[in-house]
Write a protein that binds this DNA or RNA. Structure first.
Lengths: 201, 201
DNA sequence: CCAGAATGCAAGTAGTTACTTACTTACACA
DNA sequence: TGTGTAAGTAAGTAACTACTTGCATTCTGG
């Protein structure tokens, strides 16, 4: 399955011949058919396995240090997208032909959007955002910027902010500034927040 | 060439069999080889022809009504990306296998980025942006949001702001607010700045 | 009205694809 | 020692791929 995912990332579905996959796996081509039944079943299984094993950072339920938390989350998100960029590009290109993959493909961004929206809405409810804003718009901006960066930087590096390693932080700070959240200052009650939360739970 | 572009948008390079293209064009398969020499040459020509005929709005050299100008530009950009979304997805997925298409693929976003960066930098130099910001980061945010919306909304509509028709405007206004440019007011009334900000807080 | 160009048709080539069948080997376990 | 299971080998199938050749047809411009 790892070999299948790797070949798929390089060549897409049509280009992932059973021969290539078998070769990459160091296995006889016939073994694939005996184990998975068909090329389609193998690739489907490989993709689902890959989707389930994502190591995304999570945003806290209650914001305490927005700049730090959002930066860490953005960095984890962009790193995930960069690592998987080949597979994501291939999957997106083939979604129209294989719509059954859409559930698999949309899982990660959908979860990310939900938790980011929730985080921003809480920030707003806490009164820590000076500006009026729609969480969904704000979330789409940040995730869109991160997504486009992860997909496009290798093709056109001059379009995205430098250095690459700081891009996620720059997007996160840009977002916070847009919604009017203080950056560069901490909340003194950070540890209390976590403690009270644990106690109340 | 139109038929080739259409078939390519549906099936990608490998899936664009000469038979399918010929059928879509209402032409004998052999005619393709006599006219273009090979499948690769045909598709390359078709893509280049498509790239050159983009109807993108342009930003004025000197900003006068940022909200209006940026909204119109964003709407034109998102509309272009949506119309071409199938082709863009396919091209992105196949860039690693056919790197000669990268020039063709990066032309539009590269031009857009340059003119948007220039516009934002001028806005900054004019002193009409209250906040400090890097034009390249701001440009990557707006273009990223628009790109991700155009690519992903059909797959996961709940992730992007509603209604679809106002999304571009919302992104543009979000950006202007982030860099501290007045929205909802014309140039002549610059001094109302602080009052508007306080009211919205 | 006719030469030359463009197109269509029928057939074929050589290669690749997913997938199958029939048979053999290696190994774990009882 | 025997047995079941997973794996390998060899060969082949039917369909599809880009692309070619030879010849008949249609269209067009001078």
């Amino acid at each position: 399955m790892d070999a299948a995912a790797q070949v798929f990332a390089q060549h897409g579905f049509r280009g992932s011949t059973t021969r290539r996959i078998a070769e990459a796996a160091g296995v006889n081509e016939i073994t694939i058919f005996r184990q998975f039944g068909s090329k389609e079943a193998l690739i489907k299984e490989a993709m689902q396995h890959l989707t389930q094993s994502n190591g995304l950072a999570t945003l806290p339920d209650v914001p305490s240090d927005p700049e730090r938390e959002l930066t860490l989350w953005s960095e984890s998100f962009i790193q995930h997208l960069r690592l998987q960029s080949s597979i994501i590009r291939k999957t997106m290109g083939e979604l129209e032909e294989r719509p059954e993959m859409s559930q698999c493909a949309s899982y990660v961004p959908r979860q990310a959007s939900i938790s980011l929206c929730h985080y921003l809405a809480t920030l707003k409810r806490q009164g820590r955002a000076r500006e009026k804003f729609e969480p969904k718009t704000a979330s789409a901006m940040l995730m869109g910027a991160i997504f486009a960066d992860a997909m496009g930087r290798s093709m056109m590096p001059d379009v995205y902010p430098q250095p690459e390693a700081k891009a996620a932080q720059m997007y996160a700070r840009f977002l916070l500034r847009a919604i009017g959240v203080e950056i560069g200052t901490r909340r003194t009650t950070t540890k209390q927040t976590k403690r009270t939360k644990q106690l109340s739970a």
